[in-house]
Simulated assay, not measured.
Amino acid sequence: MKLYTPGEYRGRWYFESNKYGDDIDKDTPPYPEILSDLKKVLSILIESKMLLPRFLEGKEGKLEYKNVEDLVTLIETDNFLYKCFLFGIRGDTIIYTEEGEETYSNIFSLEGFRTFQQYFSLSTKSDIWLPMSFDIDSYSFVWNLERHNLNYYRVPAVLKKINDVLGWENESLLVREFNELGSLQIGYDLFLSQQVITREYNENPNPEFNLKEYLSKME
């Protein structure tokens, strides 16, 4: 049974500000605060174990570093920030279980980090944060309460911390948005939609899951 489905977004949150315009050309330099912003974002992601960077779009090879300062230096190498308009970072995520920690790759990513404007997104392609996972093998939803209970709170906690630290005006983080296979974003939170979780619960009840309490969080 596969508890996540790479290739399909379950949640995607956009961070942006209106401080710099959209006009760019080949000579547009990185915006002045880019290194400071990058360090803030990467520090929180690494400290929370939500994203341990391993690969940088546009650069070959695996990232090898000891701390955030080393990582930012790698990103700056060869004037990388001056040569691209945007980039993304992929890597590992540590997931908590009752037996300990598990490492998953490419389930939480930083995407579209613009060098000319304060803008990027954080996304997940995993059901690990949800009470039920879509199992590819059986093509149906199955319960995923252990990983959900131990990890779901981490998504909104990281998103809120990054938003607070950056201090950008960012109304888009508060939107209500449906994603693939019934996942629902409400602000920082990620849910299975009311329709999906109610249908699946009625078909396959789980006494350890409080449906009423879960639905109330979506109101």
Rank of each mutant, 00 (worst) to 15 (best):
V196N: 13
T198Q: 09
D164C: 00
E180I: 00
E213P: 01
E169P: 15
R176L: 09
N206C: 11
E177Q: 14
P205D: 05
K212I: 04
L174D: 12
E213S: 09
K161F: 02
I186F: 11
N163F: 00
N163C: 01
N163H: 13
L173H: 08
G187A: 10
V175N: 02
A157K: 09
L173M: 13
L211D: 06
E169L: 05
A157L: 07
I162M: 02
N206M: 12
Y188D: 09
Y201N: 04
Y188P: 01
K161E: 13
E171N: 12
T198V: 05
E203D: 12
V158H: 09
Y152N: 11
G182F: 13
N179A: 10
L173S: 10
L190T: 00
T198N: 03
V158C: 10
E213C: 00
Q195K: 14
G187I: 10
Y153G: 01
E171H: 07
V158L: 12
F191H: 05
Y152M: 03
V165Y: 01
I162N: 06
V175A: 02
P156Y: 07
E177H: 11
V175C: 02
S193V: 05
G182M: 13
G167T: 04
L174W: 10
N202T: 04
P156G: 00
V158N: 07
V196K: 12
K161S: 09
K161T: 08
E208R: 13
Q194L: 04
P205I: 06
F209Q: 13
L159M: 13
T198P: 04
L190F: 10
E203P: 00
E208L: 14
L166F: 03
Y153M: 01
D164F: 04
L211G: 08
E177Y: 10
V175Y: 01
N163L: 01
N179D: 12
E213T: 06
F178K: 15
S193C: 11
E203L: 12
L159G: 01
S183Q: 07
L211M: 07
R199D: 15
P156D: 00
N206W: 11
G182W: 13
R154T: 08
Y214T: 06
E208A: 14
E171Q: 09
Q194Y: 05
I197P: 13
S183K: 08
R154C: 04
E203S: 11
